[in-house]
């Protein structure tokens, strides 16, 4: 009962804010709503019982990625554009393609059934064993990926005059 109420709240928040990101002309509003969507998604993870993932979601998405995107918003100011200029020219075509697929997928996703196994406990310990035992190699590769991203971005951002 209480779960269903929270779920309904989160769905409204997530879908509404997500639509706002796409539809708002004002980019600062879009950024705020994006952060709100991330928070709602963390709430969804909590409903699923994945509390560690929910915390990571807030830490990475709200605490770090939103800050980066805000920097992007701040460093690329745009003069006020007329509303007509903020969609691409092919918008109707894109909407025409996306809408049927979206409706089909959303309807289809209701056909998934829960497992019969009961609810599971905390997710931190199995997560850690999985990452460090079964996924040791991808874990190291992740660090190389981060290193590559760091070096690449520094090269891109660095001014030439230094």
């Amino acid at each position: 009962m209480i779960e269903a109420a929270f779920f309904a709240l989160l769905v409204i928040g997530m879908v509404g804010a997500g639509a706002g990101v796409v539809l708002l002309n004002r980019i600062t509003g879009a950024a705020l709503l994006m952060a709100f969507t991330f928070l709602c998604n963390a709430g969804m993870f909590l409903l699923l019982g994945a509390e560690t993932i929910a915390m990571f979601q807030v830490l990475i998405y709200v605490g770090a990625i939103t800050v980066l995107i805000l920097y992007g918003v701040m460093f690329t100011p745009q003069r006020d554009r007329p509303y007509a200029l903020f969609f691409q020219k092919q918008t109707p075509l894109a909407a025409l393609f996306v809408a049927p697929i979206a409706i089909a997928v959303a309807v289809f996703s209701f056909s998934f059934r829960d497992s019969t196994a009961g609810p599971k406990g905390a997710d931190l310990a199995p997560l850690a064993t999985s990452v460090f035992r079964d996924f040791a190699f991808p874990f190291e590769v992740a660090s190389v990926l981060l290193l590559a991203a760091m070096v690449g971005a520094i090269v891109l951002v660095k001014r030439e005059d230094e």
Partner: peptide, 22 residues
């Protein structure tokens, strides 16, 4: 844009943190 470099480094180390805790 060099303000951005610090944000960038921070994001990378923040990702490190999500592995450090477990």
């Amino acid at each position: 844009t060099h303000f951005y470099v610090f944000a960038l480094l921070f994001v990378v180390f923040d990702v490190e943190v999500i592995f450090l805790f477990p």
